[in-house]
Computed example of a mutant assay.
Amino acid sequence: MLKNTDIVLFDTTQRGSLFPFTQTRAVADIRFGILTPKERWEYITGKKVETLTAEYISNKGMSPGKKLFINAAILPGSVLLAMLDELQHDEAIVYKNNIIAFYTEQHQNVQVDDIKISAFNKTTQLDGEVVYISYPWHLFQYNDEAIRFDFQLITGGRQSKKIADTNRVVAPENIFIEDGAIVEHCIINASAGPVYIGRNATIMEGCMIRGAFALGESAVLKMGTAIYGATTIGPFCHAGGEIKNSILMGYSNKAHHGYLGDSVIGEWCNLGAGTSNSNIKNDAGDIIKLFPGSEHINAGLKCGVMMGDYTRTAINTSLNTATFAGVACNIFGEGLSAKHIPDFTWGVNDRYILEKALQHIDNWKKLKHQKLTDKETAILKHLYKTTL
C-alpha cells in the first residue's frame, strides 16, 4: 500500500490547537526530530507526498488516482505501518477518537472538515501508546523520540564522516556527521541519545553537546554553545548560548548568550542578544493553557516560548513561562513579556503596520540570500485581515 499508493498528509479540524505554527504552514511542514512529517514520510515511502491543509495555505488540487490519507500529526511506528498496508477502500484507522489514516479510491474534493469517523464504513483502533502531536508543547516533549526515529531512518546502512581527532566524544557509534560538515575542538556526549550533524553544518570550537541532538543542513553552532537534549537546530539556523530541549525549525537565529529551554521557535525568527525564557513557574506548579473554544489544557511542569514565524525579540528580552507569540511580531518593552502575544504585535500593545512588517521580513530574508515570496505574502495578508 505505502509503496504503490499516493500519500496525502492531512490536517484535522483541531489544527488551531497547534498555534502559532499552523498559522503559516500545514502540520506536515512542522519540524520536530530531524525532519518534518512530510520529509519523514517521503523517506519512508521513497516518493513525494501531498498535503491537505487550510485553503489559504495551499489551495492546490490533488493529483488523480487512489489515495492513502495519513494524519500529519502522528510519528509513524511499526504497528501503524503494518496496519496501513492492510487498509481497504472506505476504511479508517482511529486512535483516541482521532482519524489516523484512511484509504479511498474516490478522493475528489476531500476537505479537512469532511474527515470524520462517521464518514467511514469500517474503523480499526490503533492500540498502544503512540506519539501524536495535539498541542505545540508536544513538539519538544516528544522531540527525543522523534530524533531517535529519524536518526535510524536517515543513517541506517550508511557511513558517517570521520569524527576529527580534535573532538572529545562519548559513544561515537551514536554520532553521524554528513559530508561537508565541520566539527572541530568540541565535546559531544551521545551516550544519552544520538547526535546528527547535517550536510555543510558547522560546529565551532568549544561547543558542548549532549544528545539527543540534531543540527540541520548549513546550520551553525557558535563558539562555546551549550546544548542539552533533546534539541533540534533546523536548517540554516544560527545558535549560541544555552539551549535545552528546544526546536528551531529553520532559518532562525538565537546566535548570542541567553537561555532557551523547553521551547519551539518557528522559521525566520531572531532572538536578540541576551534574550532568555522562563520554562517553569516559580511555584513549580503545572502550566495550564487556554485555547479559544477549548477547556484549560495542562501542559505539564515545563513550557517555555512557542514563537510563530517571522517574529523577533529585542536585546535582553525576558520571555515569561509558557509565552505564546504569534506570527510577525516585534517584541520589545520593559519587564517580562505577556504570556499571549497576538500576530503582528509591535512592542507590547501596538500593531505592526502590514507594509512595514512585510518589508522587514524581506530584509531579514535577504540576510540569508532569500526573499519574501508571493505565497508568503498572501498568507501574511490573510492573517493580517483575519486577526484584526
Rank of each mutant, 00 (worst) to 15 (best):
T5V: 15
D6V: 00
D6P: 00
D6R: 03
I7C: 04
L9E: 06
D11K: 03
L18D: 09
F21R: 11
Q23F: 00
Q23E: 15
V27Q: 07
D29L: 09
G33M: 10
I34E: 02
P37E: 05
E42R: 01
I44F: 04
K48E: 15
Y56K: 13
S58P: 03
K60F: 01
K60E: 15
G61E: 15
M62G: 09
F69D: 06
I70N: 02
S78K: 14
L80C: 07
Q88D: 14
Y95N: 08
Y95V: 01
Y95E: 06
N97T: 07
E105P: 01
Q106T: 07
H107V: 00
Q108P: 00
N109F: 08
Q111P: 01
D113R: 14
D114F: 06
I115H: 05
L126N: 03
D127V: 02
Y135H: 14
H138E: 11
D144V: 00
I147K: 09
R148C: 07
R148M: 06
F151G: 02
L153Q: 11
L153M: 09
R158A: 08
K162Y: 01
K162P: 01
D165A: 14
N167G: 03
I175F: 11
F176M: 04
D179N: 13
V183Y: 08
N189G: 01
A192T: 10
A201D: 05
T202V: 15
I203N: 03
M204V: 04
M208A: 06
A219L: 03
L221N: 12
M223Q: 15
G224W: 05
F236G: 01
F236S: 12
G240P: 07
S246H: 04
N253W: 00
D262K: 00
W268R: 10
N270L: 03
D283M: 04
D286R: 12
I288S: 06
F291M: 10
S294E: 15
S294W: 00
H296W: 02
N298Q: 10
M306W: 05
M306F: 07
M306I: 10
D309E: 11
Y310K: 07
N316E: 14
S318Y: 03
A322P: 10
T323V: 15
F324P: 02
G326T: 10
G326Q: 12
A328N: 14
C329R: 12
C329L: 14
N330W: 03
E334Q: 14
D350C: 05
R351V: 13
L354Q: 13
A357D: 06
D362R: 04
N363Q: 09
K366W: 06
H369G: 09
L372F: 10
D374L: 09
K375C: 04
Y384G: 09
Y384A: 09
T387L: 13
